[in-house]
Write a protein that binds this DNA or RNA. Structure first.
Lengths: 144, 144
DNA sequence: TTAGATGCAAAGGGTTTGCAACGTC
DNA sequence: GACGTTGCAAACCCTTTGCATCTAA
């Protein structure tokens, strides 16, 4: 499935798994996620996509998010606000989670680049990947 | 609130915030969490604590977990399995999350000690703390 | 043509909450 | 005695699912 990611990045095309179909709904959800720097919840995605596809349902949004995550097109982020947030950029990077509003931001700064080794064996199991979240209060909340 | 943690560690006593009360339920939930190396969900905690306090309810468990987390006696961990897991050790350490069963393990190994700086300012806000999760399949699942 | 995807609505499952009774300080 | 806490049950909220219909390949 990593192939998908590499192909998408190199050729600017998306290779969906054979057997699956590229519907309007799927295309628009993925495009929306790739076009925003925020990390919206399913509800926000639903509302935004509904502007282009008024008939879309929550079930379709959730099913597509699940599909896109399963095939490494997007990232699923569990936030402390109780909602799952989604990230259109599946590449390896860190996040800043606001403890007040629950918003999730990317941390582009080199200081927060990963320094972890992958596929290491540990006492409890073999590591496939890791995720680091930085917590604090975002500027938006601080100024209110 | 960090004071609580320090006091607890140095003097082996718990300083609960003034105004709050140390009930049997609260004591037993905290003791249970401190006595296990697993990172149980609210449901498991409920079932275990029920053995000592057959009358306890889910509401009480959740209210106490929320209280203990709020005052830095325990850690709340959002797992990919959809359940919140709880850690009786609020000190700074990393976790291994099993992608199959959702179980959460401590990573004691020095290789996974934190190397992050705290209270750093970033473009999106000031960092208070950070958490790193390592994902993989645990030995328990691999052998089944 | 046909199996995968959608829309709708109902169900699921973890967590929170209102309220009267209880128990700690 | 006052007020924080409990037990119970209902409510909440996010997410999943069954089913008939639709549609991409």
């Amino acid at each position: 499935m990593i192939i998908n990611k590499i192909m998408a990045e190199k050729n600017k095309i998306d290779i969906f798994p054979s057997g699956s179909r590229l519907t309007n709904q799927r295309r628009i959800i993925l495009d929306y996620l790739r076009g925003v720097y925020t990390h919206p919840t399913a509800e926000i995605i639903y509302k935004e996509v509904k502007k282009k596809l008024p008939q879309i349902s929550f079930g379709t949004v959730y099913r597509n998010l699940s599909f896109l995550k399963e095939h490494d097109f997007i990232l699923e982020l569990k936030s402390a606000d109780g909602c799952t947030h989604y990230d259109g950029d599946p590449s390896d990077h860190c996040h800043f989670v606001c403890m007040q509003c629950g918003r999730v931001y990317d941390l582009e700064d080199k200081r927060f680049k990963k320094r972890h080794t992958y596929c290491e064996k540990t006492a409890v199991g073999k590591i496939c990947y890791c995720r680091t979240n930085y917590y604090g209060v975002c500027k938006n909340c601080k100024n209110n």
